[in-house]
Write a protein that binds this DNA or RNA. Structure first.
Length: 260
DNA sequence: TGGGTTGTTCGTAC
DNA sequence: CGTACGAACAACCC
């Protein structure tokens, strides 16, 4: 379920399992490559090690020793699995790397919206993808500056990857729920102090969710994510969760404590 | 069975 | 140029 917190957890996972081991084989499953051929990717990786990784928004970049960075985008259903035994091999593999210790790293993606590429360096990638500052790394002043210039609906702005990157449908709902703000509020109507509050809540939600390993079941009791269902009772007040469409996406909020 | 789904991108309209 | 909307992508899940 890949938005910023999930990718942050994938980064930790890659760092803990897959760095500094020689890659001995690369296998391709479902076609997820863009701007790189199988041959290029294969030649870039075999005989090399991963040295470090970086997260930019919902993208994970992994540096190949003496070479470029592999870029992973997880779409709606992408995931990673590090495994050794055949019976642990996951389904829906898009890319499979074998290491010299007998383990494998699989990039899985049942719905095939994931993308794998290569890029020279992270900053280049950010420019090419037209990504705004990362939601977790941006500082408060810059956030306020950017949002003061924005128009349109608050939820759309939070989800717009070129405004800030990393937040998608699920976490924008959570941030607005915790900030007591309506998803359809117009950004230009927010005061500077409201933008500062929004920033603080955004940091709090993202870091909490990363701390919890992006496991919904571990999230605080007053989060909407585990209660993201029309008609369920609000975990923060005595309201009821409503469902609307914003930016074409299903949006859940509490009309009692999230006012426009 | 059909509708819904955590993401991105495109065309179109304003 | 920035924003809004719908459709498309693919396949699983209930």
């Amino acid at each position: 379920m890949p938005e910023l917190p999930e990718i942050a957890v994938y980064k930790k996972y890659v760092d803990a399992t897959s760095l500094h081991k020689k890659i001995t084989e690369v296998e391709f499953g479902d076609e997820l490559l863009f701007d790189v051929s199988k041959k290029e990717l294969y030649n870039a990786c075999v005989g090399k090690e991963f040295t470090e990784s970086e997260r930019i928004g919902k993208h994970l970049l992994i540096h190949v020793e003496d070479n470029d960075w592999m870029s992973l985008h997880f779409g709606m259903t992408g995931g990673l699995k590090y495994f050794k035994d055949k019976e642990d091999r996951p389904d829906y593999i898009g890319l499979l790397l074998r290491f010299n210790n007998g383990f494998h790293l699989a990039f899985t993606c049942p719905r095939k919206f994931g993308r794998i590429g290569m890029t020279e360096r992270p900053e280049q990638f950010r420019e090419d993808k037209n990504l705004g500052p990362d939601a977790l790394e941006i500082d408060k002043d810059r956030f306020v500056e950017i949002f003061k210039e924005k128009r349109g609906m608050l939820k759309s702005a939070l989800m717009d990857q070129k405004t800030i990157c990393g937040i998608g449908n699920i976490y924008s709902d959570e941030i607005l729920f915790q900030a007591n703000m309506h998803p359809e509020s117009q950004v230009q109507n927010l005061s500077e102090s409201e933008l500062e509050d929004l920033y603080d809540v955004m940091q709090e939600v993202l870091s909490t969710c990363i701390d919890k390993g992006a496991q919904y079941s571990e999230y605080p009791d007053n989060y909407i994510i585990p209660n993201r269902e029309e008609g369920s009772s609000c975990p923060k007040c005595d309201g009821t969760i409503a469902k609307i469409k914003v930016s074409g996406r299903s949006t859940y909020y509490c009309a009692s404590h999230q006012k426009k």
